[in-house]
Structure formats: structure tokens, C-alpha cells
């Protein structure tokens, strides 16, 4: 069976696997939790020493790391808890309040 959750609304009842088994690993990436956020972490590149503390302490795996360096945040999934900003030893992450599109 082809498994593509993005089209689940079109599935017939017999197309759902028995026992509600989920056939694809790690597919919650299609579900976005970024809208939960009221404060957005902003990365200040000049202050960062790439110690990766924000990466290991993020509950949502929303800190992007590429080649052992911080490469910004995954704003589609970051819930804005601010642990990264609290734990950053160099204050290289700032929490900025989110604004409505119309207020910008």
C-alpha cells in the first residue's frame, strides 16, 4: 500500500491499515507545530561558538545543524519554549515576540 498521509482525507475506510498501524517512520514532520509559538528564537551568528547546547536541549529537534555548525531554526516545528535561549552560554539566541502579518 502506498502511504502518503497528506492525502489521508481521501482514503476509503478499507485503505486504512488494520489496527491503525502507522506504516511510515518519522512522518510527523508533515505536521507543523510552529503556530504554537508566541516567541520566536532568533540566532545571532556573530556571538555563536557552535557549542551545540541548543541542539541537545531542544525538545522538538528544531535546531538545524549542518556539518557540526548551527544552521538556524526550523520555524515550522519550533514551539518557542525558549530553552535554547536560556541555555545558550553566549546569549547568541534572542526570543522575539511573534507578530501578526498585518502588524508588521
Amino acid at each position: 500500500m502506498k502511504w502518503d498521509v497528506r492525502r489521508i482525507r481521501e482514503w476509503k475506510f478499507y485503505e486504512h491499515p488494520q489496527g491503525a498501524t502507522i506504516l511510515e517512520a518519522g512522518n510527523s514532520l508533515y505536521y507543523q507545530t510552529g503556530s504554537w509559538r508566541t516567541f520566536r528564537p532568533v540566532w545571532i551568528g556573530e556571538k555563536c561558538t557552535h557549542c551545540l547546547y541548543c541542539f541537545i536541549f531542544c525538545p522538538d529537534a528544531a535546531v538545524k545543524v549542518s556539518k557540526e555548525k548551527i544552521a538556524g531554526f526550523d520555524y515550522e516545528h519550533c514551539k518557542g519554549c525558549g530553552i535554547c535561549a536560556t541555555e545558550c552560554p553566549r546569549e547568541a539566541i534572542e526570543m522575539v515576540e511573534e507578530q501578526r502579518e498585518s502588524d508588521r
Binding site: 518519522g26 510527523s28 514532520l29 505536521y31 507545530t33 509559538r37 525538545p59 529537534a61 528544531a62 516545528h77
Partner: peptide, 15 residues
């Protein structure tokens, strides 16, 4: 444990 789970913001279990 990839992103997109629905644990509360700042949950210790996720970490």
C-alpha cells in the same frame, strides 16, 4: 524522535 510531535512546549520528556 523527529519534530512535529505534540508534547507541550518545553517538555522534559522530549529532550
Amino acid at each position: 524522535l523527529v519534530a512535529g510531535h505534540r508534547l507541550c512546549a518545553g517538555c522534559g520528556e522530549g529532550i
